[in-house]
Design a protein around this nucleic acid. Sequence first.
DNA 1: TTACTTAATGACACCGGTTACCATATAAGC
DNA 2: GCTTATATGGTAACCGGTGTCATTAAGTAA
Lengths: 386, 386
Amino acid sequence: MTRPSQPRTPVTTGREPGDLMTDHVSGDRMNGDRMSGDPVEEFMKRRKKATINDVASLAQVSKKTVSRVINNSPSVRGETRDLVNDIIARIGFRPDPQARGLAFRKSFLIGLIYDNPNAQYIVNMQMGALDGLRGSGNELVVHPCDWKGEDFLDEIRDFVELQRLSGVIILPPVAEDRNLLALLDELDVPFIRVTARSGDVNDPPIAGLQIVSVDRVGCEQAGEHLVELGHRRIAFIAGNSLYPSAHARRAGFEQGLAKHGLGFAPDLIEQGDYSFDSGFVAASKILSRVDRPTAIICCNDDMAAGAYKVAYELGLRVPDDLTIVGFDDAPIAARLNPALTTVRLPTRDMARTASEKLIGSDAKPGASVVFDSVLIVRGSSGPVPK
Amino acid sequence: MTRPSQPRTPVTTGREPGDLMTDHVSGDRMNGDRMSGDPVEEFMKRRKKATINDVASLAQVSKKTVSRVINNSPSVRGETRDLVNDIIARIGFRPDPQARGLAFRKSFLIGLIYDNPNAQYIVNMQMGALDGLRGSGNELVVHPCDWKGEDFLDEIRDFVELQRLSGVIILPPVAEDRNLLALLDELDVPFIRVTARSGDVNDPPIAGLQIVSVDRVGCEQAGEHLVELGHRRIAFIAGNSLYPSAHARRAGFEQGLAKHGLGFAPDLIEQGDYSFDSGFVAASKILSRVDRPTAIICCNDDMAAGAYKVAYELGLRVPDDLTIVGFDDAPIAARLNPALTTVRLPTRDMARTASEKLIGSDAKPGASVVFDSVLIVRGSSGPVPK
DNA sequence: TTACTTAATGACACCGGTTACCATATAAGC
DNA sequence: GCTTATATGGTAACCGGTGTCATTAAGTAA
């Protein structure tokens, strides 16, 4: 535990009068000539935020060496490193992100870019992103935006450039914007997009790591589930076609039915936009027909809630008169009566993975991490009525 | 538009060779001796982020003067200011928040501190906070935390101190933590708390501006509403008593009933914690009694959803057999069948006001801005059954 | 006219870290 | 034993802004 024979020249050491070191040979515990024992303790009494300079002067090395220790530079002798780390721990030094950022030209801020902030999956993903960032020294800056807005791209450019973001996470549906991806590429900021694998097996490769959900799997299960319950005349409420999830889900549901030689009733396919209201409207059309279906598949839970409302108003009982299936397993799914059969996606985990990959920077462009969806059977799906 | 007679000494001007100024008297448009016209245009070709130094050299003033212009210092001559502003606009200069923050010792980041990130009001308030910050040059850093956790305070201290936050917004229920408020006070960071006025008329004064909701008003209306519908035997599911809102709401409901000489059925008061599950449990107890009430008042919508579920399972029709009332007007309120009668609070506006006040810094400690709640009557409340 | 203010601006150090480059000291090669 | 590699640490400049103080020119009082 003895300190190394001091390697520094005693001349022009740049010591100020206020410095805390004893002259000459020193040694850790033999400098008790002043009553106030430890220079470190002395320092702590000042109750001021420690800087790299404090560490340097207490450890009697240059700030550059401290910097090396902080950044795990290999060219620091083990003893020196231990000494510096010890001081750092004792005075509770933590490098200032602002100063560090200024020098590094990055901010240690991760931007979370998304549209429609109300959706439940956004909330989940925000939590997940925070999960992944925790303890990493990065903070999350949320940035809802108006995709499709006039100067969407300019606004993002400003945000990323001005804040010198360390990374960006893009959530659906914004994550589909090729122009945005190109912009981020141009700005040379690491980014990760969260998206749903579309129906096409081979999407064109794209910059940045992708976190991909396979909505299809759970949907397929859901489709089969309905057929097994005996349903033959099945309606469908589609999601906003700007979302790849809308296509992936539809493809999944259809494939589930197709496995048994079935498909959606062609006259009972309605376009929705993932909103409760659109679900209500679509279900109204569907259920007002004389030969109404025995089941409705909705591209998400919110639209399913709209279908519930229509059924309620028409006096149809779920699932006795009508089976309803959703997607998301949003909180509302369990709160509907009866609880909604739906498909669950690990949205929070997906976003956590996104931020972990982002800061871990093992984000090889083009690579992707895949998450599967799974069917959750609850009370809204039942055997076809006689 | 002629420039002022140059006030700077021509000696030791610190000009570097690369500088763009013409010597001597100059004059704006007579320096076309080189073919490449405008120095500004020349600069723009470089496609690099402009710094204050660029502005200074193009405007031929010191960076300090540019700084003065940026910060609206009064001691800049009008013409100089115009000149500098013109250059700034033309080259699109925007001061770097990092550098600025380093010098100012603050980060232009606003921290949003909250617990239970799932609650809908948190989502609304986050949006509101962003509304208020938009265009101000501040960004929002979200920081969910484990209130009641082991080292909650230490964690907040780290966050605020390390990031040198420009301000903090605290949402319920964390906003009730006196120790937290004291800490923020000690850290000398501006903060605003969003809270519900408790039942007491005179809460002890507290540091920081408060955004206060008056939950009571709408609850009182709700209470009266039920009495007017003929209800006499009314159950109550209380909210988490750590939240002042729980007390404020209860007081409001009770006062509404009291106006007509009524009160909750003493044997039908159950404790909930604002969660769906707790609402379900509480309502189960309430509705399993032989002399069950004709109405249940729930301290929030999520617990009301729990009550709906119990009613559904027991085969009770709402509102024919049972009236249910909630609080929050969360999205689920309109999605329940029938739609839930509830009390609405302008949560988004509250948070927007919070961030506006925070950056406007007209946040006199002790002052408060008050928002009223209002009853929203929907299908879940009906006349008492015969 | 001289001296004293005041307004406007600039020079320079500083915020707290970093990189680039140079200077040692020790280890290795002949 | 002396020169050359290599590890280690120091110095200065820089990132892009700010504060402090000095300086200049113009305005005013004596």
